[in-house]
Design a protein around this nucleic acid. Sequence first.
DNA 1: TCAATAATGATAACCATTACTGATTATAAT
DNA 2: ATTATAATCAGTAATGGTTATCATTATTGA
Lengths: 133, 133
Amino acid sequence: MKTLKHSRQRDAILNCLMARHDHPTADAVYASVREEFPNVSLGTVYRNLNLLADLGEIRRLNCGSGPERFDGDTRPHYHFICRECGQVTDLPMNVLEQMNTKAQECCGGKIDSHITYFYGICGDCLDKAEKHL
Amino acid sequence: MKTLKHSRQRDAILNCLMARHDHPTADAVYASVREEFPNVSLGTVYRNLNLLADLGEIRRLNCGSGPERFDGDTRPHYHFICRECGQVTDLPMNVLEQMNTKAQECCGGKIDSHITYFYGICGDCLDKAEKHL
DNA sequence: TCAATAATGATAACCATTACTGATTATAAT
DNA sequence: ATTATAATCAGTAATGGTTATCATTATTGA
């Protein structure tokens, strides 16, 4: 039985994720934590991100390409990825639990969850495109 | 303007993906193509998988962890991933286009598609668990 | 048939992530 | 408070999947 010990670095990493809502990569978290702990190691960031994710205190995001991203909001919700700028934003809509039931009717197993990423062009990029016409 | 030239290796790679329905990784495709072309290079496999995906003849799958997978079936459909064995299977259910509309109401941008992965335990693994009780 | 060039095989480089190391630090028992 | 312990750390090497480079080979249109 391994007892968790308190660590300032882990706090800083968790705080960073709670404070920002841009779903940062490990590298971005590293840069952020470095402001408080100038010689924190990238390995420490990865180790704690994984630990926190396994504990269920943060969530891992695999948005289709590029490095993994992390989310301090563990409540089930959907994400929208802009094809133009790559920005990942939260979608304030309810998760459709009934999709699991529907999907389960199509397969022999037991489905308990789903992950959905929406793709398109975000408002900012639409505006920019407009101006350049 | 770069014109595409025909290549036996690319044919073999595409055929492999059309023939099997287990959503193989690049490495698995490599192993398969090697039976016909014993000294095909892994780089060639990657290059052509990317080319074919960009041409829209196959699809890339990012199932949340592990290496990228590829799908010879480009028609929109959902996938189910077993947490136990990692197997990726197709779900014969309609894609819910209305989710895009719904999601778009929640964000300032333009949403054109979504990708959903369902997670759970597949029939095979449920059976195995049953026997071991 | 031949020149132009896309594609190949082999290999090196790349990048994100993980594993290893010995030193440090937080916790619990004395 | 002191000490024993084990978790955590910083630093760095190693790993694994993927991409880039380059000399050679294969395809194609004239």
